[in-house]
Amino acid sequence: MSDQQVALVTGASRGIGAAIARALGKQGAVIIGTATSASGAEAITAHLKAAGVNGVGMALDVTQSEQIDAVLKQISEQYGDVTILVNNAGITKDTLLMRMKDEDWDAVLNTNLKSVFRMSQAVLRPMMKARQGRIINISSVVGHMGNAGQTNYAAAKAGMTGFTKSMAQEVGSRGITVNCVAPGFIDTDMTAELPEEIKAKMLERIAVGRLGQAEEIAATVAFLASPAAAYITGETIHVNGGMYCA
């Protein structure tokens, strides 16, 4: 791999994405973290600076192709082509299927899955030319075990797995690896929203007996992004404290 890695992390303003941005930064990559709003992007810039990481926040709505093109152009002009893409941006619109609206389904599939297609395609050409690249998709244990109230989210995350395996086969010969990291129950704003009794129930199922920390996901992503992981592709690494054994 060339000396300077350029890592693009979507949804980097908080939680797992913020931890991934820090971890890859500590590993020496220049970090571009994205958030949907300009204020979110500014917060990322400040956060990276505070963590002693070389990088910047940029505003990006991953459902908007024009924005993706514009951001990638800016990155390549200022920092060079993206060599590590972490598709982390995601949302939830939880409700039982009986009550799920088209909008709930579309919003989650569009933000969580179609964005992976768009982003991966957008960074691919320079990676193919460079004969190197890392694409790491943050899926979820829910995509593998299912979860009542999350048919949309689980479908999007399971879709990511199939996408990852297929893309890995397409681009493996060009030195590009494509993998998933599937977090279990991690202590973030997203899981903080869950009702207490659901949390208690989930905890019972976690062998390690506690919630995971965002840094524990980030460490796995950093490994997959490193030269040491060059022979791992099309794979999902589960980081869930034994909540689900794939």
Partner: peptide, 11 residues
């Protein structure tokens, strides 16, 4: 050339 090569070539 394999299929990916031909796509790259066209690009």
């Amino acid at each position: 050339a394999d299929s990916l090569d031909t796509v790259e070539l066209v690009m």
